[in-house]
Amino acid sequence: MDTMKNLLVILITAILTNNFILNKFLGICPFLGVSKKLDSSVGMSVAVIFVMLMSTAVTWPIQIYLLDPYNLGYLQTVIFILIIAALVQLIETILKKFIPSLHQALGVYLPLITTNCAVLGVTILNITEKYSFGEAMVNSLGAGLGFMLAMVLFSGVRSRAESESIPACFKGMPITLVAASIVAVAFMGFSGVVDGLFK
């Protein structure tokens, strides 16, 4: 029961309290770039969740069973990013060959994910927070879900903002960022949630 509780706490923290986009500032580029439309937001988010989970599944064991025991910790950055890049390439190829429909929907976003801070960020965070494998997977899932939550919420905000009249200098990026700041304030309200959840 305690492990369940622990995992739930990690999950909810990653989605709400420490939302990767609105709190940790990871994954901003796609956030600002791809969140204009709802379907592209969802598509990107699903791809991100997928890559996050797979990356964690590969990078965590490599760190624990290869890098740490042989004192190769300094190779972490190089190896992790290579794994992520390779994974993305692999996933794209596999999707293209075996599930072309999925590739049609998600494929375009995959190359962008390699340079997505959120993916590399979550794999490194799993190590610094000293999570077990299960905790790491849950954290990555939470991170991805939080990413999706922020993206989807935001696409709504942006599509609304489109139809309003905005001063010329704020059009585009600036108004997006200001809107993001307001959404971020809303998410700040979640900071007490986790503590009180399991009282």
Binding site: F170, M173, P174, L177, S181, A184
Partner: peptide, 20 residues
């Protein structure tokens, strides 16, 4: 709030607006 995430977004947005 300026030192926290919302502030970051906000100031960034304003700065870009200024540059525009």
């Amino acid at each position: 709030i300026m030192t926290q995430p919302p502030g970051g977004f906000f100031i960034f947005g304003v700065l870009i607006a200024v540059v525009n």
